[in-house]
Structure formats: C-alpha cells, structure tokens
Design a protein around this nucleic acid. Sequence first.
DNA 1: AATGAATGAGACTTCATTCAT
DNA 2: TATGAATGAAGTCTCATTCAT
Lengths: 187, 187, 187, 187
Amino acid sequence: MNKKRAQILNAAIELFSLNGAWNTPTAKIAKHAGVANGTLFNYFSSKQILVDEVYIEIKKDLAEFIVPASLGKSFESNLRLLWHNYIIWGVRKPLHYNLLLQLRNSEMLSEEAKVKADEIFQGIMGILEKGMSDKKIVPLPIKYLSELIMAQTDAAINFAKLHQMEKEKLEEHIKRSFSVFWHGAKT
Amino acid sequence: MNKKRAQILNAAIELFSLNGAWNTPTAKIAKHAGVANGTLFNYFSSKQILVDEVYIEIKKDLAEFIVPASLGKSFESNLRLLWHNYIIWGVRKPLHYNLLLQLRNSEMLSEEAKVKADEIFQGIMGILEKGMSDKKIVPLPIKYLSELIMAQTDAAINFAKLHQMEKEKLEEHIKRSFSVFWHGAKT
Amino acid sequence: MNKKRAQILNAAIELFSLNGAWNTPTAKIAKHAGVANGTLFNYFSSKQILVDEVYIEIKKDLAEFIVPASLGKSFESNLRLLWHNYIIWGVRKPLHYNLLLQLRNSEMLSEEAKVKADEIFQGIMGILEKGMSDKKIVPLPIKYLSELIMAQTDAAINFAKLHQMEKEKLEEHIKRSFSVFWHGAKT
Amino acid sequence: MNKKRAQILNAAIELFSLNGAWNTPTAKIAKHAGVANGTLFNYFSSKQILVDEVYIEIKKDLAEFIVPASLGKSFESNLRLLWHNYIIWGVRKPLHYNLLLQLRNSEMLSEEAKVKADEIFQGIMGILEKGMSDKKIVPLPIKYLSELIMAQTDAAINFAKLHQMEKEKLEEHIKRSFSVFWHGAKT
DNA sequence: AATGAATGAGACTTCATTCAT
DNA sequence: TATGAATGAAGTCTCATTCAT
C-alpha cells in the first residue's frame, strides 16, 4: 500500500478520535501526517471520502483482529473467541474503538460506506447464522443477535476501560460478561 | 416555561437528529423555530450551550417517560417496566432517540452537560442498586449493569425500528428481549 | 437636569474610558447605569449621539473646572492658572481625561459635536487672544498657541500620572512645566 | 518581503486612517488590497493582530524617516534634525500620521504591540539621554522630555496641515516651533 | 416614561478545495 | 507527485435599534 496514504489515515484516526471528526480540519490532519495540505486531496478527493475510508479502515482492522485463524469445533467456543477478541481490540485500541462508536451514529457516513463496511463482516455473520441454524442458540433474528452481541461487548469494553483493567482481571471480566450473555441466549 | 425557548429546542432536536448536530447551522434552527437569527442567542448563548441543553432536555424527557409512577413490589417487575418503557420511548420518539445516540459519542458535549445529564438518572440508578443489594441479580458493578441494560435495550430498539414493529408484535419483542437479559442476569 | 440621563452619561464615560467607545455596547452602558436597554435610546436617539454628548459633557466639565472665577491682572498669572487647573483636572479625573484623548482622534465624533465642543472653549480662547494682542507673548497664530499649550500640558499630565504625583510634588511638576513653556513663549 | 502582506498593510493603513480602525471591516480591507477575504487571515491571524502590526509598521516607517543617517556634532543640531524630520513626516504622510494619533489612545492596541513599538524608538531615546547627561538641556526626566517634544511637534504638525503649509513656509514654521522649544529647554 | 424581548444586518473567522509551480 | 498560497462560501455570534406592553 501507499505510505503517505497510510500516514494520512492514521493521522485522521487519531485526531478524529480525540476531537471529533466534525471539528478536525483537513489542514490539521495533513500537518499531523507530515504532508502538505493539498497532498491529502490527492489521496482522498474530499473530506467525506476520507471519513468513509477511515471508517472502513477501522472496520477492516477490527475484522482482521477478531476472526480466529481457524474455527474450532463447537459454536460456543467460536463465539467465545469472537467475544473475547472484540473486547481485547476495544481495550487495546482505544482511539479506533472510540472513533468507531463516534462515527456509527454521527450522520457523517455515506450510505455506500455503511454498506461496504457491512460486507467486511459477512464472514463473521456467517458463523452466527450457522450456530443459529444448528439450534445452538435461542431462535432470534440474526440481525438482532448480532446487535445484541455488539451491545453487550460494548458495555464490557466501556467498563473495562473505566477500571483500566488488564491481563487476568480483564480476562476474568470478559469471561463473566460472556457467561451472562451465554446464559441468556443458549438453548 | 418559555415558549420561544421550547420552539428553539424542538427545532434543534429535529434538525440535529436528521442532519447531525455538527452540520446544522444555527441559522437553520432559528428559521425552523420561526424566530430571528439573534433570538436563538438570547436563549442559548452559544451553539455549544444549545447542544448541551438539547442533550439534557432529551435525557429529562426520557427519564420522565420511563420512571414508573409507583414502584411495584418485586424488583423484576420494576426492572421489566423500565425495560419496557425505554424501548417504547425509543420507538415512539425516533428523533429523540437517534439524537441521544448521536450525541453520546460525538465529542460535542461539554463535561458539565454529561454530569448534569447523569444526575437526572440517579433515581433510576437507585432502583438498580436496591435490586443488587437485595441479591435479586448476579453481583455485577452497578455501572456495568446499567451499561448492559442500556446496551441490550438499544439493540432491541434498533431491531424494532428496523422491522417497524408495533403493538402486539412490539410487545412480544420487548418481552423476549427482557427474557434473554433476565435469564442471564437473575440469580 | 434629568437624573437618568446623567446616570447614562456617567456610565458611558466610565465604560468608554476603560474599554474604548468602539467596543462598549449600548446594552452594557444601560446595565451599568441601572436602566433598561431601551431607556438609553429615549435619552440618546443613537449611539453616535451618545458619543457626541459624552464628548461635549467632558469638555463642559473641563471648561468649568479650569476657568478661573475671576481673572487676575496679569496675563501670565491667568495663563499659569489655566495651565495649573488643566493639569489638576487631568490627574484628578483620569477617566474623563483618558476618554478626551481617545475621542479626539478617533473618527468617532460627528463634525457638529466638534464644533459645539469648540464653542465651549471660546471664552478661554479669548483670554489667549488678549494676551497675544497685548504682546505678552511671542507672536504666534492663536490656534497654534492653544495647540501648543494643550500639547505641553498633556505631556505634563501623562508624566504626573505615570509617577502618581500628588500634592507638593505635583505642584512642583506643574510649576516646572509651565516654566519651560513660559521661557520659550514669553516676549 | 511579501507582496500580498504589504498590500494588505497598506490598504489597512489607508482605510483605518480615513474611517477609523474600529469601523473598518476586514472584508473591506481585503477588497481594497485586491485579495480574497480569507487571504487576509493567512497573513494576520486576527483583526487585533492586524491592528497591532499596522501600528508597528507605522512606527518603523517613522523611525526610519526621522533618524539622521549620520549624527552631527552638536546636540542641538541633532535634535533640530529629529524635530524637523518628524514634522515633515507628519505632513507628508497624513494618513500614517493621523492613524498614529488615532491608535495611540484608542484602547485598540495590545500591550505587546506597545512594547514592541517602544523598542523601535530606543535608538532615538538614546540621543536624548546623551544630550541630557551632557547637560545641554534643563534636567528633566527623559520620559517627560520625549513626551514634551512629541507634544510640541504634534501641535506643529496639526497647525501646518491646517494651513496647508509647504516648502519655505513650512520650513519657517518648523524653525519657529523648534525655537520656542529650545528657548524653554536649553540650559 | 420605562421596559426588555425580538430583530437582522453585518462583523470576524474558518476551512474544504483548487491550482500554479 | 507534492506542495501550500489563495480562495470565498458559509458559520457563529454581536449589537444598535425598535416596539408592544
């Protein structure tokens, strides 16, 4: 990939996360990235597109991070791993995570970007669908199930960050949060 | 209360929700509210303050709506009612609900506003704390429990809106969502 | 005279002097004067007129203060008294004095106000003219002479204020400053 | 130096002088300078800073103009030259001169600007100090002496402009004005 | 006469975007 | 391809003035 493009994306993620995308000027991003003002527009033809690409970049990073290299045998263990990895990602990459939340409900994303970002998660959706059709879990619409998982892991991430949890304590917290979910959702 | 102030607040809520607070000019709000440009600043001395007050207004509206007039006997029934009312509110007031999510992670709110908004929910927090200390529910930090509830109800609201649920269907959905939660959390 | 009118004038003098007339809103003047916003415009139909009236008020105050009740016999003693009184006025009424300087070169005064203010000093000009025609002083255009006097007294006032002179020290300073002038200008 | 910057400074000096800095919009300055609205702010990050820089520019121009290329032998001749040059400058550059007076007492200048502007005149102050310590002049505080000189030359400039003096007549006027001063101040 | 809420023109300033170098 | 000065539309906010009470 292109180096300058990556610099700009990273600068944007950092500044967007800290100050809000809506009040981060492109000029500041360029400066933070160590490139000229106009260079940014050689790589991203408008700020709208930059925002979209930042969102997609984050979603890609997340998807790569949480998908297990190889799927285990049981649905529960696969789901537990996804659950675990998502929380770890959220804790380890606070800027990315914060920005993800920020953009999700901001009315700043184009429809195209949302669709594209969803596509990245189709593989993960597949795992859930499989578990559902195998009746490993209470029958819920797949879309609702995923929202539910995301919602509960978000709560877990926020709480872990609030208490600056690390290592064993964090693992314990993840375990417990999954346990609460699994108790309610398993068949 | 003051009529013009309310007009402005309502106009702001509507436009913020539809277009994003970050790209709703104060001039448009004033026009939509049927007042002059400068009048807005007689009531809200800056856009920042308007945003803060909008957020507080929404939280107040929500708190009023979900708190049961009289608390029932059992913790479960009280919690079930809160759960129910929150989802109803989210479905009935989509603009308010959407804006609530938008502002929460936007970096647009002042710290003062966040604190003030939290104070509005202290009564509701009290209900949870009571249930917890009475061991009606698995021992979780109260802050995490509330995040968890909010997260799951948010998921339920999103899903209900996605499928434009109403009446019996909506009630059924609410019931099921609570059931999943209660299963996982009850002692 | 009218009490409210005087309150407004005094408030204006104070605020104009401290912050500059150009950035003192009429609303602040009204508040400082303890009257309503609109009341100010009952007495002064525009800010321009208020500024003009403030200037005239100051000039009147100054003229009243410096003109000796009864003129002495010698031109020198009369002039010495004017000189003395002007400096005393400038030191005792720093707000008035400061504002006088501020307005003089500000392009904020209407031509009418300047003319009116000059009329107030015609009596004093008469004294100078008399001394000139009696050849008590080197032949200079009367207008230049008055400028010269004002200029030197201004310098004396600034210096006295800089060193916070009072009583004997101030009197000594005034004496010396007049002496320098008189040495240069007497015939 | 930078061409656009100079254009803006010159436009500002002209418009400030004619209409007062307080009621010259930045938009008018930009237009008069032949640049876009925003360009002005590339060179002067706020109107306050533009005003400050205008003041400093004028003081620099004045200092350059009045300081003699080489100092003569006698203190009197050096002082006479400064006196002469200042008056000539004031008459030849009426816009600059008018604005200098306007800004001096306007409460529009930042303290930094005043300090910076004073530094420009340190060389000239040195000349006066030398004359003082050599007892060529009555013992007066240096600060007062400079105020006195400025005050009298200001009077001379105003009078010269009032009568639209030129060439011999102007030179004669300057000579006389210095003579009045020197008579009063020499030892 | 006194009030003060309402007005809206206009001020300063920001910033996404362009384009000549 | 990279630059960064220039642009000007558009945003937030101020404030002299009006007018119904």
